[in-house]
Design a protein around this nucleic acid. Sequence first.
DNA 1: CACAATTAAGTTGTGTGCAATTGAGTGGCG
DNA 2: CGCCACTCAATTGCACACAACTTAATTGTG
Lengths: 162, 162
Amino acid sequence: MNTPDDDWLRLDQQICFSLHAASRAFNGVYRGILKDLGLTYPQYLVMLVLWEHDELPVKKLGEHLRLDSGTLSPLLKRLEAAGLVRRERSARDERSVEVRLTEEGVALRRRALQVPRRIAASTGFDTDEIRTLRARLDELTTALDAAALAEPTGGAPGDGRS
Amino acid sequence: MNTPDDDWLRLDQQICFSLHAASRAFNGVYRGILKDLGLTYPQYLVMLVLWEHDELPVKKLGEHLRLDSGTLSPLLKRLEAAGLVRRERSARDERSVEVRLTEEGVALRRRALQVPRRIAASTGFDTDEIRTLRARLDELTTALDAAALAEPTGGAPGDGRS
DNA sequence: CACAATTAAGTTGTGTGCAATTGAGTGGCG
DNA sequence: CGCCACTCAATTGCACACAACTTAATTGTG
């Protein structure tokens, strides 16, 4: 009389735990390597985007990283305090805040160039394996985001609960 | 004169962002589904372990989940406040705190049985795909944990810090 | 132009996650 | 017995993440 529900629960424990653990393990390795640069892992993600774009409103930054102002505002203030970015209200639209790299922020990129190699070495994965895993994770994220929109609280789509 | 470093940085942006985003997307889907049970995602992870083991010292719980007391202590207090677990000092070793499910905590398992199916549906992945991904992530975590131990700050391994 | 709806940042409150420290308890060793 | 090293949980401080709310600016409509 062992319903498969029990197995599902066990499997769920494994997959959700695995993802959670992998994310934190990754975070931990980055933490160690990024300490030299004085950056946290999320700060590094922001810098990666800025190194590509040089200047960007907070909104766009949030879209790239799927983070909202509640997370980005304090984070950007810390980057500003560290002298890596400047935040200034857009003259065109004063609701918007433009984030741009300082010279120091641009310069930090040179020191960051060695980071990915050290990370890759830590994973023991080669480029193709990383690419494959990334593609898989992106599929997952896309599916999960779609599902999150489809059933906000898990009920039938018609329920008006907030 | 485009050094491959630039490409590495771009690839790094993609993989670390992908994992970060996938983890948060997963978290978000669980958040929606677990709201019915009154649990957060990490609290659910703790409950999953307790449903398997029924009673466990905080230390063991932390080993299962790779979390330390700094995270678990407040989390467990919330679960206790919610009436799902009890925490009591071990009589044998008063340094240790035994965490055990209350009746209510045991009962919650029945309602949680439907969670994995709803998650699986959200991912759009079948059982084999989930298993494969999980195995991949575990490899990654193992490699990363080993690397983290090997180079705590990126320096020589021989430093005598306690 | 007046005014409601929308949008962008920022703020607040809650809950992790982790390093570092504290405090209590245990065990070994002279 | 007295002392020291070690262990476990809890606490403190900092930095995300995210929901909910606030504030300010912009846009759409009459």
